[in-house]
């Protein structure tokens, strides 16, 4: 059966459901039946698609900045700002229960990524470490030390040998998983604005390798003329993985915000969710151009994004307490009962 390709130009909000608190992060279940979210109320939520039926439960002692599913299709791992990773039996008909809690980092855990084979996953956090974990028993396999600032994002390459991590200062490290050595670094310092208004602001907010293995994409913000007032613009960078050189600077021109998350779509596009003082947007680029070919205005500032297992839907979470499911396929035609049927 031919795989349906995403068509970002047809993007539209298919579903939106409101929680009782602003939302922070999200992910889809591997079977695509649910989207999971985390809120500023320290709780997790499971939303059934398409009914929107919600199950909510208390989780960490702090906010959850990222969440991923293991390949067993049942276990959700959440990354807390309380230094812990929590494992949840997330698909049970009852309210999900914690099955394991691991004191994983000293400081916030900001990023998680599961390996393509599902056997391991990585976490990155404010202790400036990246950690590789055994997915089945939750044991630490290796720590990767070298970042000089907080780790904001991680990505495990599908080859199973390579790991990427990005930090607050705009340094991206490529690690050899087997040895724990840094193989090389990518310069994304444009994602950091240092010392404007006396603060350090920016960071590599999202990282992903393109499906054709050619590009490493990173996103965040630039042009921060007023970091304390949210005056900055979203940006994505493409690096050629062979040469390590930056080949594209894809800026959301005219938009004020941060590129909070990115993902590659099955049509070869890069999708970015941005949010900030200019509102929320989904931005779409192709690797052959610095200019986005489509932008979609969201009803509110976006804070995180996840791609559905079918590759044809994106979830975004928002300050206005909504989780929104966007379809990347044409809207079904709506029959207008008032319009007479064409004559045959």
């Amino acid at each position: 059966m031919a795989v349906t390709k995403a068509n970002p130009k047809t993007v539209h909000v298919a579903h939106q459901w409101k929680h009782s608190s602003p939302l922070v992060s999200c992910c889809f279940a591997p079977d695509g039946r649910y989207v999971f979210t985390a809120g500023q109320d320290y709780a997790l939520q499971r939303w059934e698609i398409p009914s929107g039926k919600k199950v909510a439960w208390s989780a960490h002692d702090s906010w959850v900045r990222d969440m991923v599913f293991l390949h067993d299709g049942r276990t959700l791992i959440t990354a807390g700002c309380d230094d812990t990773l929590m494992y949840w039996d997330a698909m049970s008909s009852e309210t999900p229960k914690a099955i394991r809690t691991v004191a994983a980092h000293k400081g916030w855990i900001r990023s998680l990524c599961v390996a393509a084979d599902g056997k391991t996953f990585v976490s990155g956090g404010n202790d400036r470490l990246v950690k590789l974990w055994n997915a089945s028993d939750g044991k630490l396999i290796r720590s990767f030390a070298g970042h000089k600032l907080d780790v904001y994002s991680t990505f495990l390459h599908p080859d199973g040998k390579t790991l990427y991590s990005g930090d607050q200062g705009g340094e991206i490290r490529e690690w050899e998983i087997s040895s724990g050595k840094t193989l090389r670094t990518f310069d994304a310092k444009v994602l950091l604005t240092n010392n404007t208004q006396g603060v350090r602001y920016g960071g590599v907010r999202g990282l992903a390798v393109s499906p054709d293995n050619r590009y490493l994409a990173a996103c965040g913000l630039h042009k921060a003329t007023n970091p304390l007032g949210a005056v900055n613009e979203p940006i994505a960078l493409l690096f050629d993985r062979k040469t390590g050189k930056k080949v594209r600077t894809q800026a959301g021109s005219g938009i004020k915000g941060i590129a909070w998350q990115l993902t590659w779509l099955n049509d070869g596009s890069l999708a970015v969710a941005s949010g900030g003082s200019g509102g929320g947007f989904l931005l779409f680029w192709r690797p052959d151009s610095d200019k986005e070919y489509h932008r979609f205005k969201l009803p509110d500032t976006a804070r995180d994004m996840a791609v559905h297992p079918d590759g044809l839907q994106l979830a975004t979470v928002h300050y206005d307490r909504h989780v929104r499911i966007h379809k990347l396929t044409p809207k079904p035609a709506v029959k207008n009962p008032d319009k007479p049927a064409p004559k045959k």
Binding site: Q197, V199, R200
Partner: peptide, 17 residues
Amino acid sequence: HSNYDTHNENFNFHLEQ
């Protein structure tokens, strides 16, 4: 000690400062 006027990213900025 400056700068605490954190209309944006209050938590990241307070974390550092």
